[in-house]
């Protein structure tokens, strides 16, 4: 009788997704660099000048768990908007195979392009009403720098990762990653194109590990 119960329990457990269990979690803090100087828009030959200061987006980091994890069949589409002559968000982490749309929310043309080895593309000039919304599929891991051929000051970043386990820090550098697989892994924090910090972590189901990446 006891053996039969055990078999039933084993069968039930096998059909429940692992994600329903708490899994492991990591939280901690990443030391972020100082805020950069806000960009200056070159308006030398613009007949129409609208008053306004470009917004400053504070530095953030992307924390991710490195490793070979199974890839999902489909990934949700993400967006990077062009609004008030800036990319919003300025930094977007995505998993390999994610499609990103670039809606133009300004009342003028934008021309998004990238020469980054991870993805070279040029969307050409398009209006706010452009449908379908211009989009790009990012199929290789790496850092993609977004620029606008019309507005020299515009810069955006897409960090294409091979892992589904990643999170952005808040502006103070705090982060939390949930539902992680147990085992030994490497936790990395991407700070900028030249700085990535890492630590080995031993994750156990149901535990929250405290990790700081100074």
């Amino acid at each position: 009788m006891g053996r039969q119960r055990l078999l039933w329990l084993s069968a039930i457990l096998s059909v429940i997704p692992a994600s329903l269990f708490a899994g492991a979690a990591v939280e901690g803090h990443v030391d972020l660099p100082k805020s950069r100087s806000a960009p200056v828009q070159a308006k030398r030959y613009e007949v129409v000048t609208k008053a306004g200061v470009l917004s400053t987006q504070p530095p953030l980091a992307v924390v991710y768990l490195e490793g070979n994890f199974p890839r999902p069949a489909s990934l949700p589409t993400k967006q990077v908007e062009q609004k008030d002559l800036t990319f919003v968000p300025a930094l977007l982490p995505i998993e390999v195979g994610t499609k990103v749309q670039f809606p133009n929310l300004d009342d003028q043309y934008h021309n998004i392009f990238s020469y980054s080895p991870a993805k070279r593309f040029d969307l050409g000039r398009y209006r706010p009403e452009e449908r379908p919304i211009p989009s790009v599929m990012f199929d290789r891991p790496g850092l993609v720098t977004l620029r606008c051929d019309i507005h020299e000051h515009m810069r955006g970043l897409i960090l294409v990762l091979s892992t589904p386990y990643f999170a952005m820090t808040d502006t103070a550098g705090h982060f939390r990653l949930d539902k992680l697989p147990a085992g030994r892994h490497t936790l990395k924090a991407w700070i900028d194109s030249r700085t990535t910090r890492e630590k080995s972590v031993d994750l156990k189901d149901g535990q929250t590990l405290q990790v700081d990446l100074p």
Partner: peptide, 8 residues
């Protein structure tokens, strides 16, 4: 950030 300058 009320004053900003860029040399290019």
């Amino acid at each position: 950030n009320n004053f900003r300058a860029r040399l290019s």
